[in-house]
Design a binder for these strands. Sequence first.
DNA 1: TATAGTTCGTGTTAATTTTACACTAACTTA
DNA 2: TAAGTTAGTGTAAAATTAACACGAACTATA
Lengths: 233, 233
Amino acid sequence: MSYSYNHPRPALAVDCVIFGFDHREEAPELHTLCIKRNIEPFKGKWALPGGFMRMNETLDEAAARELKEETGVEKVYIEQLYTFSAPDRDPRERVVAVAYFALVNLEKHSLSAGTDADAAQWFSVSKLPPLAFDHKTIVKTALERLRGKVRYQPVGFELLPDEFTLSELQALYETILERTFDKRNFRKKIDNYGLLVETGGMRRGKPNRAAKLYRFDSKRYKALEKHGFIFEL
Amino acid sequence: MSYSYNHPRPALAVDCVIFGFDHREEAPELHTLCIKRNIEPFKGKWALPGGFMRMNETLDEAAARELKEETGVEKVYIEQLYTFSAPDRDPRERVVAVAYFALVNLEKHSLSAGTDADAAQWFSVSKLPPLAFDHKTIVKTALERLRGKVRYQPVGFELLPDEFTLSELQALYETILERTFDKRNFRKKIDNYGLLVETGGMRRGKPNRAAKLYRFDSKRYKALEKHGFIFEL
DNA sequence: TATAGTTCGTGTTAATTTTACACTAACTTA
DNA sequence: TAAGTTAGTGTAAAATTAACACGAACTATA
């Protein structure tokens, strides 16, 4: 058994992989929000936002807090990803990191003009800069989890604005899963689940036919989920 | 950013949910291996095997070590499950627990006659005794993960002996997923994947027709997996 | 104000996959 | 040798998925 409360202890940090998606891009991509470190170690390098857990908060709370403190992002979808514990992942001393991943609508959370571009920046996941610590591994793990998750849980909507078009939704799935879908078949499937509601609005502003706007009916999903319904794309 | 290495720190423990399955039972059930605590807190209560991470090992290593030390189980399938951090989950002081789940063949790991039944015992997951700390929550989380995982990754085989019959495999899936499968359809599907190899042996000893023995072809699975193949039940 | 350019929205058919379903074979025990 | 039990096998109907093309609606600009 050997429980003892007097072992030396690692520091315990949380790090957040924040995925953002901008449906307005022509060739949309997943993005991740990185922070430029202003202290050692890895001073000046890009890193995932994060920090140490406090003794009066849970890890979930610590992740949400760091997210807000470092990037202003709050009230978004966030879930625990994995705990990383390579003994040398921090060059100074032992730090175990509990990684989280968050999904945000990049449009809503695009960095305001006044923001110091040196402090925080979105990078497309295919063109990440070198990252501090083992953060590259963390991002990779988060991507794999997102790809797995998106197929059987409707989390993709978290990456879109509240109102979105079916084409935007399709582009999102095509981006994440790196494949294409047939437009009519995709719509048929989404339609059948009955999880989308027309808002009445239209997406205008582009030189082509306007598209209907929908929102995700999360109440209905929760109800269906209880009866064993499984979303699957 | 606010990285600092001088915060107060929680203790960091690992706990293991060990799932075992005995194909010889008439109404087979999933089991979990519990340890009786011989020190405070929760002295005398059942708990998941676990202990503190050491400064020179990873969490994976700590989990494997505790598993072996406390139950003798080694070289089995094990993966990180989730990190639990409720501030009051340990009545003494702050302890964050990284939970793992392991899958073992209960037959191979049944407690040898000499073992002190007071020290370690298998419980069917539907009849768990009260558990120390938040270990009940951990088991519940592990079960959910196992149910989700088993459907799209061939981990079920880890719960069976190296050689098993198709009926045993079917009973395993029916037990975990709490549903039944049609015998012919089940076999057809498994057959199509081409992941089972006849060993030539037969399961004898029961007063009925002997059944062919198979083993899981993990090499073939790994090869297929690389090309995007997804096992799905 | 007409035309070119672009995305939106829609239905049918064939192919594939999934489901439902029942009997004989093989072995053991009495 | 008969009774009891599990092993092993195929086919047809139903449901799901995949393939495929064109008119509608909107904007910009000629």
